[in-house]
Simulated assay, not measured.
Amino acid sequence: MTYNQQEFDIRLEWGIRGVEELAPISDVIIIVDILSFSTCVDIATQNGAIIYPYRWKDETAIEYAKTLDAELAGFTRKYSDGYSLSPTSLLNIKPETRLVLPSPNGSTLTLSTKSTPTLCGSLRNAQAVATLAKSYGKKIALITAGEQWPDHTLRVAFEDLIGAGAIISYLTGNLSPESKTGLAIFERVKSNLLVEIENCNSGKELIARGFKNDVLLACDFNVSTNVPVLIANAYVGRRC
């Protein structure tokens, strides 16, 4: 009870423990994983694809995809290997494509929300996600995914806090201090989103690995009116 921000309408927390605290007392959960799960899911579902989140990048993912008669995204982020956690790889995904998307962050959080209505939010669809979220009720929780250190502990990710703040800027209600922090950071950097995210740790890492275009796609603010909604363990797009 101490940690669930229950006295506030708009809540924000990090990682799997955040889901565990906030999901049971919220009308809707918004998963925010800017680089790159949320960006991938928005682009793919906007094109009409169906995305099945999956936590593990191993043999179980292969078997899971077979049970769904679905394609499996590559375990590494490469443009040449078909679909992957690279948003660029999904730009031309065909409608009705069923794709299993392994991700240790965004997928893990998505599959932990259980029966709570779940949306996937990014900078690309911030306003649309906020609009749809309000239709579920007043109690809205944003879960920022963060990244992982080499020992698999949570690394707070600057870009996810910005993404959450962007969505919060379109919400109404009583904000928790955590939500106010996300909003304040977004307001501070919104005029220069691309430069700020290019220079944060996650952005610098992707650019150094040759994936600058993925960062550019993630920073396309409010270009999408699509909202990925989790239905039967799959994200499908809904126009808003």
Rank of each mutant, 00 (worst) to 15 (best):
T225M: 04
K134V: 11
L132V: 15
E159L: 00
I167G: 09
N192C: 10
L119S: 11
S179I: 13
S169C: 02
L206D: 03
S176G: 01
R155F: 02
T172M: 03
S122M: 10
G146C: 08
R155P: 00
Q127I: 09
N213S: 15
A232H: 14
A234Q: 13
G237F: 03
N105W: 09
A234H: 12
V195H: 14
S122H: 11
L194P: 04
G146R: 08
R155Q: 13
P102R: 01
I162V: 15
S191D: 15
K134P: 02
L99H: 09
A234C: 10
S224K: 08
E147D: 04
F211M: 15
L119N: 09
N199I: 03
L161K: 14
P102A: 06
L99K: 04
R155Y: 05
V227I: 07
N192Y: 08
F221G: 09
V236Q: 12
P104Q: 07
T131M: 11
A141Y: 04
R238H: 13
L99C: 04
V100T: 09
E178N: 14
G182H: 04
A208T: 14
K204F: 00
T172W: 00
E198G: 00
E178F: 11
Y136E: 02
L175M: 14
L216N: 14
D214W: 11
A232T: 12
K180G: 10
G203P: 07
E187H: 10
G106S: 05
T131N: 14
A128R: 02
F158R: 09
W149N: 15
K212S: 10
K204D: 01
Q148T: 10
T172H: 10
G203H: 07
S224I: 10
A133N: 05
N233T: 13
P150M: 06
L99D: 04
S112P: 08
T113W: 03
I197A: 07
K139N: 14
E198C: 12
S191P: 01
S112M: 08
V189F: 15
V215P: 06
T116V: 15
E187L: 11
N192S: 15
Q127N: 10
N226M: 12
Y136P: 05
P102G: 02
I185Y: 12
G173H: 03
F211R: 14
K204Q: 15
V195M: 11
E178H: 13
I207F: 07
H152A: 10
I168Y: 00
S191A: 13
V195C: 03
G173I: 11
E178D: 11
P150H: 04
E198Y: 02
T97E: 05
W149A: 14
S135H: 04
I167K: 06
V236W: 00
A157M: 00
R188V: 00
D151C: 05
L154M: 02
T113I: 10
P102M: 02
L142C: 09
K190P: 08
S202W: 01
S115Y: 11
